[in-house]
C-alpha cells in the first residue's frame, strides 16, 4: 500500500508515502499537524501528478535541513513548500496542504530506515481507507496543476507533465 524509498544522498533517511481516501477527520488531522503532534506532511493529492514529485520535494527538504538552509520552520512544512512553484509560503500551504473538508490525503513521513512505529502511529490517527500510493495519479486535477505551474502546451510536446512539474520545483530558487 505505502511506498518507501531510501534517499540515495542520505542513506539513513527514508521517505514513506501513504494515501488515504474517504477520510472523515481531515480537520482534526490538519490541526494536529499544525500543532506538531503529527510528524508528517499532509498533502492534497489533487496537486500531485506522481509519487516521484513528492520524492523530489522530500529530498530537497532533507538536503536543506542538513545544510541549515530551510525556508520554513520544519522539515514537513518544507516538503509542502518545495512542491510549490512559487516562493510564497502561505500560498504553498493553501494549494498543497489539506483543507478541513478534504476526504483524500497523502501523508508523507521522513524516518530512519527501520522506524516503523512512527508510521503506524500516523496510520491509526487517520480515519479513512488506505489505498495504493500509485493511485495518486487518478486523483490529480490535471487542469489545476497545469495552471498553477504555468505549463504551456508547447512544453508538453517535449516531455510529460511530471517532467515539467519536477523541473519547476527543482529550479524555483533561481528563477
Amino acid at each position: 500500500m505505502h511506498l518507501t524509498k531510501v534517499l540515495e544522498l542520505f542513506p539513513d533517511r527514508s521517505v514513506t508515502q501513504m494515501l488515504f481516501k474517504e477520510v472523515k477527520n481531515a480537520a482534526e488531522l490538519r490541526q494536529s499537524a499544525v500543532e506538531g503532534e503529527i510528524s508528517g506532511a499532509l498533502i492534497n493529492p489533487a496537486m500531485l501528478v506522481d509519487p516521484f514529485q513528492v520524492l523530489i520535494a522530500a529530498n530537497k527538504a532533507v538536503h536543506l535541513q542538513t545544510i541549515g538552509k530551510m525556508k520554513t520552520r520544519s522539515l514537513y512544512s518544507e516538503i509542502i513548500f518545495n512542491l510549490s512553484p512559487t516562493n510564497k509560503i502561505s500560498e504553498a500551504f493553501k494549494r498543497f496542504g489539506i483543507s478541513d473538508g478534504d476526504d483524500v490525503v497523502m501523508v508523507v513521513v521522513v524516518h530512519n530506515k527501520d522506524d516503523l512505529q512512527h508510521l503506524s502511529d500516523i496510520t491509526t490517527r487517520v480515519d479513512g481507507r488506505q489505498i495504493p500510493v500509485e493511485d495518486v495519479s487518478s486523483l490529480s486535477d490535471i487542469e489545476k496543476i497545469k495552471k498553477l505551474y504555468k505549463i504551456t502546451p508547447q512544453e508538453e510536446k517535449c516531455g510529460s507533465l511530471l517532467d515539467a512539474v519536477v523541473c519547476r520545483m527543482a529550479t524555483k530558487d533561481v528563477m
Binding site: 523530489i56 529530498n59 530537497k60 538536503h63 517535449c158 519536477v166 523541473c167 527543482a170 529550479t171 533561481v174
Partner: peptide, 8 residues
C-alpha cells in the same frame, strides 16, 4: 527537448 532537472 533538454534533460529534466531533478535537483540542484
Amino acid at each position: 527537448s533538454v534533460p529534466v532537472v531533478y535537483f540542484v
